[in-house]
Design a protein around this nucleic acid. Structure first.
Lengths: 121, 121
DNA sequence: ATTATAGTTGAACATATATTCAACTGTCAA
DNA sequence: TTGACAGTTGAATATATGTTCAACTATAAT
């Protein structure tokens, strides 16, 4: 009577009930992928600085450059990135483009995480 | 009378007051880096699946392998990663190592983000 | 003691991604 | 209409990172 083997990791299926229970309660893959992408947007030091600055007030690209001490190109690339992920929006006014947070969700997640980081000192 | 130029991005300092205001109110760089690292932990599909599964219940490495359809090595590497970032903890019991969430902060951030993703349908 | 299995580890590989660079567009002012 | 400047873009480069592979440790069972 051979044991039931996991094909991928070549271990025995040790706790089939646990696996089954977890499988029934986890979020579906699409949702988790979306969440991972959201976190990815905040996982880079440049991008989180931009998000944090925009949570203070609307800023144009050059303001952000000056604030972060970075080139227009680098900042613009990351703003494009954040815009695609719908975390910020940009509005053109004359020669300038003013960026702001797309909605309040980012602010909320940011606040919870800030609290978490501050508590872990 | 030359304008004041930003050295890094070679633009004029357009809105010095905005920059000053933002500079005074943003979080310090260390805090933002810590936050970015926290988000980085959740920004990979494998890691967020692990976190999600562990938020359901304690699991050993092989349980996670079976659940995610991945090798022990790949899962173990990511668990090490998550352990270093203090998001999960592992307890050895005999041959097995049981992993669980390190604390409730992750659960909270996860919940807020899940809500965010679900609302954006 | 020997064998099987849970789990870890470091190196190698492949891929993803952040910044730089140079060229470009669009708008304003002279 | 010409020059200056805000901002964007694509390609190139450099670096970071996820998975695989093979070798390893530790524990339990025979």
């Amino acid at each position: 009577m051979g044991k039931c083997k996991c094909i991928v990791c070549d271990c025995n299926i040790i706790h089939a009930d646990n696996v089954e229970n977890a499988k029934n309660k986890v979020q579906d893959d699409d949702t988790l992928l979306e969440m991972a992408d959201f976190y990815k947007a905040l996982s880079d030091s440049t991008r989180i600085k931009i998000i944090n600055a925009l949570s203070v007030q609307e800023l144009c690209v050059c303001d952000i450059c000056t604030l972060l001490n970075m080139t227009k190109s680098a900042v613009s690339h990351q703003l494009t990135n954040l815009k695609e992920l719908k975390l910020v929006k940009g509005e053109k006014k004359g020669k300038e483009v003013w960026y702001s947070l797309a909605d309040d969700h980012v602010r909320e997640v940011f606040a919870v995480t800030l609290e978490h980081v501050k508590e872990n000192v």
